[in-house]
């Protein structure tokens, strides 16, 4: 289906508020609607790793989905892994029946219906790291964990990956801020740092959200598992169209894409529908679906009510002519 252009924030907020009101009315709970705490505004998010020592850096690697690798910063306070995404201005969706399970980032992959958990061969993996450390697979769901300030969160799409070779984000966590000792991760958050730790971060290229301009590394080819799987190297994910170069100067925060761990898994078979052509990988991280319109809801509800009334009338009618005949 065609996706409408993103509406103005105000319009979307109004639509959401109305939907919430309907939900509240439908569910029979009635807190004051105007008092609803709105989700944190995404405006404060910055591209590139955090410069605020208390901010949480979020790394998103679309891998074979063909959206490149993005690094953004969620300003404090961050209350959960999902909150970090939200504050970093990255849209996401959770599964309908499994609210703690993230199924899409920036509305990808589109063929995941987001009803139950994603299939075991195509899902978003959730990674943690201290700044300057190595990625490790989280023991917690993103909704159940409060990222310590100053740490790094990673989201990496795992396509056709065996349980032992889930690819971490193909860029290493950004190095510590100068003069700020990196916040360590609590031991229980993740116990098995991936064996395929990326080598020292000295590479020149930075397929970072800052992309071409800011990182200075230019548009290096993306990680082997990323671009090659997309059916040809093509332009680097960090094309200017992806996101605007943020106000993140620090070239030191960039890492190389080609040094991605070997565990990235086999390149997806060409023609796999889940692998997107890198050329089309113009990802708007804040992209969300249409918020729809209440008109359709009214029409649908009217339809259901009409049919229900017809059923009631028919049930009444059949009872009347033959009293005592029906049980």
């Amino acid at each position: 289906m065609t996706r409408a252009r993103r509406r103005t924030a105000a319009a979307a907020a109004r639509a959401r508020a109305a939907l919430v009101a309907v939900a509240v009315a439908a569910l029979g709970v009635s807190p004051a609607v105007p008092g609803l705490p709105a989700p944190a505004p995404a405006a404060a998010a910055t591209d590139g790793p955090c410069t605020d020592p208390d901010g949480v850096t979020v790394v998103v690697d679309f891998q074979q989905l063909g959206g490149g690798v993005h690094v953004r910063c969620a300003p404090p306070p961050v209350t959960s892994g999902f909150d970090a995404l939200q504050r970093a201005g990255i849209s996401y969706r959770t599964a309908l029946t499994q609210p703690g399970f993230l199924c899409r980032i920036a509305d990808r992959p589109e063929d995941d219906p987001c009803v139950t958990t994603s299939p075991a061969d195509a899902y978003w993996s959730y990674w943690l790291a201290p700044r300057g450390g190595t990625w490790c697979y989280s023991n917690f769901g993103a909704g159940n964990r409060v990222p310590p300030p100053g740490t790094v969160e990673g989201w990496s799409f795992a396509l056709d990956a065996a349980a032992t070779s889930v690819p971490p984000p193909s860029v290493a966590p950004p190095p510590p801020l100068p003069g700020v000792p990196p916040t360590p991760l609590p031991a229980r958050d993740c116990t098995t740092p991936t064996s395929s730790a990326p080598p020292p971060t000295t590479g020149p290229a930075a397929p970072d959200a800052g992309g071409a301009g800011a990182a200075g590394g230019g548009a290096a080819p993306a990680a082997p598992g990323t671009a090659s799987g997309g059916g040809g190297p093509g332009p680097a994910p960090g094309t200017p169209g992806t996101t605007t170069a943020g106000a993140t100067p620090a070239p030191a925060t960039t890492t190389t894409a080609p040094t991605a761990p070997g565990g990235t898994g086999a390149p997806a078979a060409p023609g796999d529908s889940r692998a997107r052509d890198a050329a089309a990988a113009t990802v708007d991280l804040g992209e969300t679906g249409d918020t729809g319109s209440p008109v359709a809801v009214a029409a649908g509800a009217g339809l259901v009510a009409t049919l229900g009334a017809a059923a009631l009338v028919a049930a009444r009618a059949r009872r009347r002519p033959a009293p005592g005949a029906g049980p």
């Binding site: 289906m1 979307a12 849209s91 969706r93 995941d112 969300t288 679906g289 249409d290 339809l303």
Partner: peptide
């Protein structure tokens, strides 16, 4: 119809469910 947003209205962000003509 496949797994479209019309059949699975997103809740993140909250959206009004639509009434896709075909299935209706």
């Amino acid at each position: 119809s496949g797994a479209t947003d019309a059949l699975h209205p997103p809740l993140q962000p909250l959206t009004w469910p639509s009434l896709p003509p075909g299935p209706t």
